[in-house]
């Protein structure tokens, strides 16, 4: 398992691995939004939580097809399925690698983008915390979508259609948490729901994703 994690991380940082791409995408989204809606009148700070969360979600979505597609193409997935690792474990490790490569950088750099979007200082801590709690669920659900579409030639667009509705609860609670933090309300309820969704996702979705992979390897 550790060897698989190391391999995936090493592949991500080597040439063509796409490390940092989603971070750059996140930055671009957050730069474009003020051009679209205007920067004055304090409206940016009002919509900043939503923009930041939607941006993080899209940045995460962008790199999902790499989770399994490359391994399926070069035959590694067949070999991993015959290896003495449970396929559920393989899914979990690959989702973890995806999170370390795309989710964690987003979490770390989000305060910077929060400043760009005039997010109130009080909400910064909640932004980081909500992304830290919520993005692992995004990676795991993405792994499920990637597992379902892995055998398809042009699965990318279809995968977005399958995965984005699954992101709705996480997005709602995550953005709500930041919004409440920004206006000084209690954030406990969305925090608990967000954490609950993430934990349940991490515990159950690997089984569904592994089942989908088995079907696609037949």
């Amino acid at each position: 398992m550790r060897a698989l994690l190391w391999r995936d991380l090493r592949l991500a940082v080597r040439a063509g691995g796409g490390f940092g791409l989603s971070l750059a995408f996140f930055l671009i989204v957050c730069t474009l939004v003020p051009f679209g809606v205007g920067a004055g009148g304090g409206q940016l700070s009002r919509i900043a939580p939503g923009i930041l969360w939607v941006g993080a979600l899209l940045a995460c979505l962008l790199s999902l097809d790499r989770i399994f597609a490359l391994d399926h193409e070069d035959g590694s997935l067949d070999l991993l399925a015959t290896a003495p690792l449970p396929l559920e474990g393989v899914v979990a490790i690959k989702a973890l690698a995806h999170w370390l490569v795309t989710g964690l950088p987003l979490v770390v750099f989000s305060p910077l983008l929060g400043v760009l979007l005039h997010l109130p200082d009080a909400a910064q801590i909640w932004l980081v915390l909500s992304l830290l709690i919520g993005t692992p669920a995004l990676s795991m659900l993405g792994a499920f979508g990637a597992a379902i579409t892995v055998g398809l030639r042009r699965g990318g667009l279809l995968m977005s259609l399958l995965v984005l509705p699954l992101y709705v609860p996480t997005l709602i609670f995550g953005a709500e948490m930041v919004r409440r933090g920004a206006i000084g309300l209690d954030v406990t309820t969305p925090l608990v729901f967000l954490a609950g969704i993430t934990l349940a996702t991490l515990a159950l979705v690997p089984f569904a994703a592994a089942a989908a992979l088995r079907v696609n390897l037949r």
Binding site: P165, L166, V168, P169, I172, F173, E176, T189, P190, F193, I197
Partner: peptide, 13 residues
Amino acid sequence: VFALLSRYAVNFW
């Protein structure tokens, strides 16, 4: 599962 979750999340929202 997620449709049901969304239902309650949206209610909350």
